[in-house]
């Protein structure tokens, strides 16, 4: 019986497999063009000196050495890390609260959902300009500007990201909350659990998988942030140190890489590519680490 069944699956698999080229082909070719080949080339270029990719020259690990000596890159790293953590916490807490309230069944839930999700439809660069206009409209009354104080730049970007991302995360949380089995909640209520107890002991453990996804997304989004950073402050204000070295106080990693690539120096393109590789290892490592950590806390249903 058993062998017969596996035979059947095998022959089905075989039949399917014959069409593998058709099913996988288009995606695979596009994937190689759009990701695999550029990725490999990117790693190779990080060990080259080049202005145009067509005349790259292999130089070994010099670019990496330069990257680690670069104070602006270190600053961008810490700034980005801080930003990612703060935005992660705020976005997820707020998104969960909103999602929780919206699943209580109050009037107009659908309308609110739409409103909260709406900013997600606006592109990053445009978002940056919209908010730079608003912040300067407000700060202008106090004779200052978002470009003059790095703390304005930091919190401005946090507000912007919250505005954009809360709606998206909210949708994921709502989906999770709606999947919490009603009988467990009912059992909790019958057992006399307070609503707080129900929330923390029953509901949250049951939506852990939503948390996994949301934390993963907001962490990697925070680290990879580029458009909004460029449009809102572009790294201003700078700290100009004695001797001329400059720290761009609100410059995040992605923007730092972009600026390095387009600065005028025979080696800067290679250094930028090396920074990108380090950046990639960082984001990939953090993302996968976080995934495996929160996965363990998920409740199996």
């Amino acid at each position: 019986m058993k062998s017969k069944k596996s035979n059947a699956t095998n022959s089905l698999q075989k039949a399917t497999r014959r069409w593998g080229v058709l099913f996988m082909g288009p995606v695979l070719i596009a994937f190689i063009i759009g990701f695999v080949w550029p990725f490999i080339q990117g790693i190779w270029l990080s060990m080259c000196q080049f202005r145009l990719i067509s005349d790259a020259k292999f130089i070994g690990f010099d670019n990496y050495v330069k990257t680690f000596q670069d104070a602006s890159f270190r600053h961008a790293f810490w700034y980005t890390a801080m930003f990612a953590i703060v935005s992660l916490v705020i976005i997820n807490v707020l998104a969960f609260i909103v999602a929780y309230i919206l699943t209580l069944g109050i009037k107009g839930s659908n309308l609110y959902r739409t409103v909260f999700f709406m900013p997600n439809l606006i592109g990053g660069i445009v978002l940056g300009y919209i908010w730079s206009m608003i912040f300067d409209g407000i700060l202008g009354r106090y004779q200052t500007s978002i470009l003059l104080e790095s703390k304005y730049g930091f919190w401005g970007l946090i507000i912007l990201m919250c505005w954009q991302q809360i709606g998206y995360m909210m949708i994921i949380y709502i989906a999770g909350l709606q999947n919490v089995p009603g009988d467990i909640l009912e059992a909790a209520r019958i057992d006399g659990a307070t609503s707080m107890q129900t929330l923390f002991k029953v509901t949250i453990p049951n939506v852990m998988s939503s948390f996994t996804i949301c934390i993963f997304l907001s962490l990697t989004n925070g680290f990879k942030l580029f458009d909004q950073n460029l449009a809102l402050t572009g790294g201003q204000p700078f700290i100009i140190q004695e001797g001329g070295t400059t720290i761009k106080t609100t410059e995040m990693l992605a923007l730092n890489i972009y600026n390095t690539f387009y600065s005028s120096n025979t080696t800067s393109q290679g250094v930028a590519q090396a920074k990108a590789v380090i950046f990639f290892i960082l984001v990939a490592g953090l993302g996968l680490l976080q995934l495996s950590y929160t996965r363990k806390r998920e409740v199996q249903q």
């Binding site: 004779q143 200052t144 470009l147 201003q236 204000p237 140190q241 004695e242 070295t245 400059t246």
Partner: peptide, 30 residues
């Protein structure tokens, strides 16, 4: 631009020194 922004907001000697640093030391650095 960054240095001049600081100076525009507060025209102090210290801020002008920052402009000077950006202008002179910045040249050497770049």
């Amino acid at each position: 631009v960054s240095a001049l922004n600081q100076y525009n907001a507060d025209q102090s000697d210290a801020n002008w020194e920052t402009v000077r640093t950006a202008f002179v030391d910045g040249w050497a650095e770049e």
